[in-house]
């Protein structure tokens, strides 16, 4: 089975509030205010693919779109034992551009051997639009399932995908090729790579394409061409008007707290 996992590099969502700052444009975060990391759901996706390969064999390619720094994300993916890595170089910044991203990814996928399964993270930790997987499926004309947390191969051309939904989960049987966006579960926490694999990953080749190499317009990511455009970005200030419960004794305070809670509970 040929699997492709799309990996997005993002600004660390765990950046402490004090370090977080906006770029001069005020339309995105300052990319130097925190470390760049691989989006966690993308890592969950890669882990899901790795487990599938551990059980059924196959080949895993990883693909990332972004500035030269995405090499780090791809190296980490290779260290986790992906077989081949591809990158689409695009320096136009970290904007929420799911539709353009899906177009670029689809163009790159056109250059690869036939794939059986294409995975994305279900959303990213920076913009979190959560659109790329579905849009990519449409670009490729393939079936799509979101919120997948487990995948099993059942035959030469079908997969079973488990989807987390509102009240539990459902299992679907889907023909290959299929696109799925992966969410997190207890079973797809990304593995820690072995040191030898980290060292070897640094020596593996990475195929790099420009937008032009993929016959895409260099204007693809220009804000005025995007379907979704950020017009304002602000850092919200917490209100900080918490009423601390006072009291002479602990019992008194707990009593007051209970009354406040009970008042809300009764109003429902």
């Amino acid at each position: 089975m040929n699997i492709l996992v799309c990996l997005k590099q993002i600004l660390d969502p765990e950046v402490p509030a004090r370090d977080f700052s906006l770029a001069r444009s005020h339309l995105q975060a300052d990319p130097t205010c925190a470390d760049l990391v691989t989006n966690i759901f993308c890592e969950n996706a890669l882990e899901t693919a790795l487990q599938l390969r551990d059980r059924h064999g196959g080949r895993i390619s990883i693909l990332s779109l972004g500035p030269a720094s995405v090499e780090d994300t791809l190296r980490k993916g290779l260290a986790m034992q992906a077989d081949a890595a591809f990158m689409i170089l695009n320096d136009t910044g970290h904007l929420p551009d799911s539709a353009a991203t899906a177009k670029a990814l689809a163009a790159a996928i056109g250059k690869l051997d036939r794939l059986d399964l294409i995975l994305t993270g279900h959303e990213s930790g920076d913009w979190g639009a959560g659109q790329t997987g579905g849009l990519l499926a449409e670009e490729l004309g393939l079936p799509f399932i979101a919120f997948v947390d487990e995948i099993e191969e059942t035959g030469p051309d079908r997969l079973i995908l488990r989807q987390q939904n509102d009240s539990g989960w459902q299992k679907f049987s889907a023909p290959m090729p299929v696109v799925a966006s992966i969410t997190n579960s207890d079973h797809n926490l990304p593995r820690i790579p072995k040191i030898r694999d980290i060292i070897l990953a640094n020596r593996k080749p990475i195929t790099s394409w420009s937008l032009g190499d993929l016959e895409l317009s260099p204007d693809l990511f220009l804000p005025e061409h995007l379907l979704v455009r950020v017009t304002e970005l602000t850092i919200p200030q917490a209100k900080g008007d918490c009423a601390f419960i006072e009291g002479a004794t602990k019992e008194e305070k707990i009593g007051k707290l209970a009354e406040k809670i009970a008042a809300i509970a009764r109003s429902i």
């Binding site: 509030a17 470390d35 926490l189 072995k194």
Partner: peptide, 29 residues
């Protein structure tokens, strides 16, 4: 060699790799 060690230590190591400190989830800068 095996990348097989307690999960909470893995989280510290992961954080060290990503953020150069072991305190995953800290709100401090």
């Amino acid at each position: 060699e095996e990348a097989d060690f307690p999960e909470t230590m893995q989280q510290a190591i992961s954080s060290l790799e990503k953020r150069k400190h072991p305190f995953a989830g800290t709100e401090s800068s």
